[in-house]
Simulated scan of single mutants.
Amino acid sequence: MFVNGCLWVLRSGGHWKDLPARYGKWKTVHRRFSRWCDAGVWEKIFAALTADRNNQYLMLDSTIVRTHQQAASGKGGPKIRRWGVLEVV
């Protein structure tokens, strides 16, 4: 349920406070998400998923990525938001 809750936030672009109750308390889910980011757990999970070329369950689709309206203005300078994986440049 925790991973599904994280995926819900990342797919929908919603705030953690808007997380449906079926995934647990938003603050608990966010806290664990942050700890996993700091510990590098997400990188290990994605590395394991991408290591198997025959993994039929791995699908990455950029059409699900959304942006908030406020993101277009760029006010307040650059801010780093944890997504679980490092950004590849």
Rank of each mutant, 00 (worst) to 15 (best):
Y57G: 14
K79R: 14
G14L: 14
G5W: 10
G76S: 01
C6F: 06
L49S: 05
W36C: 08
R22K: 08
D18Y: 09
L19E: 01
W26A: 11
G13F: 14
L86Q: 15
H15Q: 07
A72K: 12
C37P: 02
H15S: 09
R81H: 15
W26S: 05
D18V: 01
I80N: 12
N55M: 07
V3M: 14
Y23F: 04
V88R: 14
D52A: 02
A21K: 10
V3K: 11
I80W: 07
V88P: 11
G77A: 08
N55G: 03
D61I: 02
T50H: 12
K44T: 00
K25D: 04
Q69F: 06
Q69N: 09
C6A: 06
P78H: 15
G14W: 09
N55P: 11
R32Y: 10
K17V: 05
W8E: 00
E43G: 10
V65T: 03
A47V: 10
R11T: 01
D18G: 00
T63M: 08
E43Y: 12
M59A: 02
G84V: 01
N54A: 06
V3N: 14
P78M: 13
W16A: 01
S73V: 14
F2P: 08
Y23E: 02
L7R: 13
W36L: 04
D61W: 08
F33Y: 09
T28N: 11
G77I: 05
L86K: 12
M1S: 10
K17H: 12
G84H: 11
Y57C: 15
K75Y: 15
F46M: 09
V29A: 03
R82F: 07
A48V: 04
D38K: 11
A39E: 10
L7I: 03
A21V: 10
R82Q: 08
A47L: 14
L10Y: 00
L10M: 09
G77M: 10
N55H: 15
V9S: 04
D38C: 07
F33P: 00
R82H: 08
L49V: 01
N54W: 07
P78W: 06
D18N: 01
G76A: 03
W83M: 09
K25M: 11
S12I: 03
Y57I: 04
K17C: 03
L49I: 11
K27H: 15
T28V: 08
E87A: 06
D52R: 10
G76N: 05
M59C: 04
D38H: 09
E87D: 06
K75H: 08
V41I: 15
G40D: 04
A51D: 05
D61A: 09
I80G: 14
A51T: 12
R82M: 07
G76I: 04
C6T: 02
R82A: 02
D18K: 04
W42T: 01
K79N: 13
H68T: 01
K79C: 03
V85T: 13
R53E: 04
T28P: 03
